[in-house]
Design a protein around this nucleic acid. Sequence first.
DNA 1: ATACGATGAAGCAAATCCTGATCATTGACG
DNA 2: CGTCAATGATCAGGATTTGCTTCATCGTAT
Lengths: 232, 232
Amino acid sequence: MKQILIIDDDEKLGRLLVQYLERYDMKAHVALTPSKGFEMIKKIKPDLLILDVMLPEKDGFEICREIRAKSSIFGQLPILMLTAHAEVTDRIVGLELGADDYLPKPFEPRELVARIHNILRRSSDDNTVREIKPVNGLDVDVSRREVKLDGSVLDLTTMEYELLILFMQFPNKTFTRDELMNRLRGIDAELFSRAVDTLVSRLRHKLKDTSKTPRFIKTVWGRGYTFVGEQL
Amino acid sequence: MKQILIIDDDEKLGRLLVQYLERYDMKAHVALTPSKGFEMIKKIKPDLLILDVMLPEKDGFEICREIRAKSSIFGQLPILMLTAHAEVTDRIVGLELGADDYLPKPFEPRELVARIHNILRRSSDDNTVREIKPVNGLDVDVSRREVKLDGSVLDLTTMEYELLILFMQFPNKTFTRDELMNRLRGIDAELFSRAVDTLVSRLRHKLKDTSKTPRFIKTVWGRGYTFVGEQL
DNA sequence: ATACGATGAAGCAAATCCTGATCATTGACG
DNA sequence: CGTCAATGATCAGGATTTGCTTCATCGTAT
């Protein structure tokens, strides 16, 4: 289970988040002050840090800077910043200091969860994704993020790549559209949207997979899509 | 079967939902008042709570808060809030108080069902995927929606697949046409229609089960159909 | 600021499926 | 064997789903 550390002096919000994140299979801890926060980082070794910019002692930017400076100790601990100001400058500053994402208050808990998933996925991608077997002329090198079709390298966008990776990890599994959306976007993307169709369409195009008898991505009418693995 | 509790004073809407959800294999109950609602929660132990924000006695937010406060009693009962205001503030408040999702009225029944599925999928580890035993060369992997006949994958439409699943869950049970229609389409199924026959015909065809001595789907003359399980 | 690529939303035409009617065939039963 | 009801098969029309184009938006690089 993922460990999340929240550094925020708003006790009530902290409790809400702990409770909320619990439902998404994440164990959250709250530190009310930065100093407590540093202690707890060492103790519980969280997978993600949620940081309020408005804090006693020192502000979130300062903490962010410190942690990044001591990166050898804390590793590449992903950081998500919360701030009351919806100002762009905050964001820029925060991101420059090494935060991985930024969320203005007030926010929707679900949005928070979505972003958490995004960050965690990003930061653990290369380690988590298992080996992907070449299939039918399509070869993916995850560590180099390189996709080869019949020998020549394809140029895929982030989304296209993520979709392909997901498909190839589970060949012959039929994904519904909302399953795909959830996997790609985090919890609860828009439910009724054709975004997936469009994405699939684009990917198919780059895979030169536009014939009626798909080489890779098969449409399962009324259900979703299937990446065709071995020939049976 | 998933139990859903709806707390809403709109009797008509309640009835419609009960009827609608039935088709999706969910048993819905309606409580017209919050106090009734609390009673019923204890009694039927629903898997999901649908909550209107506009209620007599106390509003949905209040109820949500109470339930979350008594979380030890109610566990992590997922909550879906309905509200007439499409305002973001409502949404934020609702979600912070522990609702899992939010749906503005008026909504499409199908969208509701989709969200329910999303929430249930999230909150329960076990997707209530019913195991289906391979029978006579026919093997169904429900989680991947994959059907294999003698080793090769079959391409079934939604209806065909649903029908097959239904049959295989109850091998050797004789279904009447009405029963099948009800399970597949819902209660509003036309009583006299050959739709089922046609469907069975198509499925038989794909199962290569067209001989006089059926390998899978047996016709029970004057009754309906039976999916043949083990050879006895 | 401007330009550009990536992405999502809207929407329409095309593909695909479901349904119910019709008719040929089958099975029950005297 | 003949009659009649039940069933299987086919097909067109309507309904649904999908593919893809176009356009708006967002973030990023110049």
